[in-house]
Design a protein around this nucleic acid. Structure first.
Lengths: 115, 115
DNA sequence: CTGCATCCTCTGTGATACTG
DNA sequence: CAGTATCACAGAGGATGCAG
């Protein structure tokens, strides 16, 4: 496999697949970050998330959640009951991302006051 | 009106306008993060950035840089010479974001090996 | 070299109606 | 309650040519 650009450091010309870009791909969706944020606080049900994100439609919410699932950031627990109940929570991978979420929140609060 | 998600919640959840979303808005562009990354290493010229980002067109690069400029993340220094020379660098605000970039890179390297 | 203007494409997002 | 299925659309991204 090709050497990553950061192996052995120096020549900044050596770019392959930037890890920062990998992260970017995961959080690229319009609602991804905020969803992760809400799930970092506690497990949420589908409807709960929809209420938390006032302007999101069910279709979009479903898709964003599915993509986060595919990236193994979010776990989907289905309870076979009537009425249906589904709970979303962070996977270990998702939980490992929480510090970054917090960093982004802190950074925003500290530096973006005026916006 | 519907209860906001932060009404009556524990202190740790009290957010006015979710700051995480603010951050999201800034780094939303497809190339924003990687551009910031490259500028975090050192000041770069326009052409240099374009070479670093193999598949980006001039128009797009210009637009992404302008948006970062508008968000005061990037500083644009124009040298009135012939041929023209323009250098891009991080503003103090942009520099304050570097730790988060590094966090994202580290996180990716540690957890996303397989992807 | 840098970058703007234009046009075109395509993805993501949003709205709605229907289903188990 | 928790989706799925469609359709429509805005906007981001991309290619190209021209200009300072």
């Amino acid at each position: 496999m090709a050497r990553s650009w950061f192996d052995g450091e120096p020549p900044e010309e050596q770019i392959e697949i930037c890890p920062v870009t990998q992260t970017q791909n995961i959080i690229a969706g319009k609602w991804k970050i905020i969803i992760l944020w809400h799930l970092s606080i506690k497990t949420r049900r589908f409807n709960e998330l929809q209420r938390l994100l006032p302007n999101i439609s069910k279709g979009i919410l479903t898709r964003q959640l599915r993509e986060l699932e595919d990236d193994q950031m979010v776990h989907r627990e289905v309870y076979k009951e009537v009425p249906p109940k589904v709970e979303y929570s962070l996977t270990p991978l998702g939980q490992s991302f929480i510090p970054i979420l917090n960093s982004m929140g802190d950074w925003s609060k500290k530096h973006l006051k005026s916006k």
